[in-house]
Deep mutational scan, measured.
Amino acid sequence: NKASVVANQLIPINTALTLIMMKAEVVTPMGIPAEEIPKLVGMQVNRAVPLGTTLMPDKVKNYE
């Protein structure tokens, strides 16, 4: 099972992601793969992401 990116804290809307905000966890359904964490640093979320929520591609601005 592959790990996904999960919010390590509440991430407010329009916040630029940092390493400390994210952790890798095996979750269902799968979100953004954990190996993409370095790519996500500096990207902004387009909505608030509660603690423990899986980061889905549609929650990150300009994620492809």
Rank of each mutant, 00 (worst) to 15 (best):
T54S: 02
V26F: 13
P38L: 10
V6S: 03
P12K: 08
D58P: 02
V26P: 05
N62E: 09
M22T: 01
L19P: 08
G31P: 00
V41M: 05
K23A: 09
E25S: 11
V26T: 10
N1R: 12
N8Q: 11
I13W: 07
G42L: 05
R47T: 15
V60A: 01
A24I: 08
N14H: 13
V45H: 00
I11L: 01
A34H: 05
M21K: 03
A24Y: 06
E36K: 12
M22Q: 00
S4W: 05
I20R: 14
Y63N: 02
T28R: 11
E36Y: 11
E35N: 13
N8P: 00
G31D: 00
L10T: 13
N8G: 10
D58A: 08
L10Y: 15
T18P: 00
N8S: 14
N62W: 10
M22K: 00
N14G: 10
V27Q: 00
E25A: 14
M22I: 07
K61T: 11
V49T: 06
P50C: 09
M43Q: 03
V49N: 04
K61I: 15
I37F: 02
A48Y: 09
A7S: 08
L17C: 06
L51Y: 15
V49Q: 06
G52C: 08
T18S: 10
M56N: 05
K2I: 13
T15F: 07
I20N: 12
M30H: 12
E64G: 14
I20C: 14
L10P: 11
I13M: 13
M22W: 05
K39D: 11
K39S: 12
K61F: 10
I11Y: 04
V41G: 00
G31H: 04
I37H: 00
K59A: 15
I32N: 00
E25H: 09
K2Y: 14
V27C: 08
S4Y: 04
V27M: 06
V27R: 15
E25V: 13
E64D: 12
A34M: 06
V49E: 05
V27D: 00
A16H: 13
M30T: 10
T28M: 13
M56T: 15
N1D: 14
P29S: 04
V49G: 02
E25M: 15
K61S: 09
E35S: 14
M56W: 06
V27N: 00
P38D: 09
M43F: 10
L17I: 12
G31R: 02
L40H: 00
M43H: 09
P33T: 05
M56Y: 09
V5P: 02
V6Y: 05
M30P: 13
T54R: 01
I20P: 12
M43Y: 10
V27I: 05
M21D: 02
N1M: 15
G42K: 02
K39G: 09
P33Y: 07
V60N: 00
A16R: 14
V49F: 06
R47G: 12
Q9C: 15
N1C: 15
L55K: 03
G42H: 02
K23L: 08
G52A: 02
K59F: 15
I37Q: 03
L10W: 13
S4G: 02
V60D: 00
A34T: 01
E36V: 07
D58F: 11
L55S: 02
N8L: 08
R47S: 15
I13E: 14
V41T: 04
E64M: 14
V27H: 02
A7Q: 01
Y63A: 01
K39I: 12
T18I: 07
K61D: 08
E36T: 05
L17V: 00
M22R: 00
D58M: 05
K39E: 09
I37K: 00
V5S: 01
V49W: 06
A34Q: 04
A34G: 07
V26N: 10
Q44L: 11
P29V: 07
V49I: 15
I11V: 02
P50L: 09
Q44N: 05
G52I: 05
T53S: 13
T28H: 13
P12W: 08
P50K: 08
V27S: 03
M30Y: 12
T28P: 01
T18M: 08
V41Q: 04
N62K: 07
K39F: 13
L17T: 00
T15R: 05
N46C: 14
R47I: 15
M21C: 07
E35L: 11
M43E: 00
K2N: 12
V26S: 07
G52Q: 00
L10A: 12
N8M: 09
E36A: 10
N14K: 06
I11A: 01
M21H: 07
A34D: 03
